[in-house]
Nucleic acid binder design. Structure first.
Lengths: 199, 199
DNA sequence: TAGTTAAGATTGATTGATCAATCATTTGTG
DNA sequence: CACAAATGATTGATCAATCAATCTTAACTA
């Protein structure tokens, strides 16, 4: 009657496959634009099986967006607001973020869909917004520290953080057909300007 | 047999009403998420009439996105790369753009949908991309002029223009539930930093 | 060990709803 | 009357979700 360890692992793998296929297709074709049938095919699973793993299409969408988000939590934690050399810490952060935003085209497309459709996916939007707020908070702390240490010009740190995170999302949209990561790298010093470094 | 002047005007008005309703609904619910029936209702027109004005739903979408774009052409033309006082010209431009981007939530949502779905709407995407390129070009010329005059620090002008237009789009996404225009206004000096003004 | 049972996962045909597009009919106008 | 615009019922396609039937396997039995 109970499932064996192997069966449980198989089911977990299946669930992951469905999520991956869903994320890819939702990112490419949008929520209404991707039939569950297609997700099932891409995941190598029968149509019916999708509904044994997820109550309905909406739940699947929510999970496909929010579960990968956990992977990105370390992006927030890696920022050290207590860093001695604030400018170096900022440059490391920007460089890392740029590289990730450049490479996560698919997932960020998905995020964009939720943002532009936030009335339709309020719960999903809320989780994204909370993540964004945590990131913004950390950046803000680092900016405050830099201003106190005198290595950054005085500006409203909240606004600086807002402009920074906005710029990351905006670059993802503007360079949407620009997979060339080197183009992105070249923008790092320009992004740094936002923080008002004293030269 | 020929239509009277009044009839022609009525038809043109009807066409405009359909386009306005379509833009609003497409922006809110996306392409697949808005039935033609709903557009017809919102425009105060019968279902069948939509198809006497537009061949099909795709054509209607394309027109709803690209026709309002003509209104924005003056945003590009208003930038004067020959301006004496480059810093003042830049600040005027940024202020104007911020105000417009803050107020055009609906239309820019629509634009974002095309960008994230550019494989599905290649022709529409192309027109948006061309507009973006014209804007970027003008900004670049102004930056070059500012650097030659010595009022801006030397940076790659192309990159500066890219970062600027990216930031505008990104702010629209980040502040998606922030209709408060005053929040946007406060970001003007931060955006100016991108251009590297000498103080 | 082989055979039996039952719990639970898997499947895809079916159902009912929704949609874009068509088209025969009606309405309005010169 | 003649022509063109306007209408909405109809058509055929597509979709999410359900569900009865099938398969898989752990647990039990002799």
């Amino acid at each position: 009657m109970p499932l064996s360890e192997e069966q449980i692992q198989n089911m977990q793998r299946k669930r992951r496959q469905i999520l991956i296929a869903a994320a890819t297709l939702f990112a490419e074709y949008g929520y209404e634009g991707t039939p569950v049938k297609k997700i099932a095919e891409a995941a190598g699973v029968s149509f019916g099986s999708v509904f044994t793993y997820f109550d309905n299409k909406e739940t699947l969408f929510h999970s496909a967006v929010t579960e990968p988000l956990k992977e990105f939590e370390k992006l927030v934690e890696e920022i050290d607001p207590e860093a001695e050399d604030v400018l170096a810490e900022l440059e490391t952060m920007v460089s890392k973020h740029i590289r990730i935003y450049a490479s996560m085209n698919e997932f960020l497309n998905l995020v964009t869909r939720v943002l532009t459709h936030y009335r339709k996916f309020p719960d999903t939007f809320k989780e994204l917004d909370e993540f964004h707020e945590r990131l913004r908070e950390r950046v803000m702390e680092l900016v405050v520290s830099g201003q106190n240490k005198g290595v950054l010009y005085e500006q409203d740190p909240g606004n600086v953080a807002t402009v920074y995170t906005s710029l990351l999302m905006g670059m993802r949209l503007s360079l949407i057909d620009e997979p060339e990561s080197s183009m992105w790298e070249r923008l790092v010093p320009h992004v740094m300007q936002i923080f008002g470094p004293k030269h």
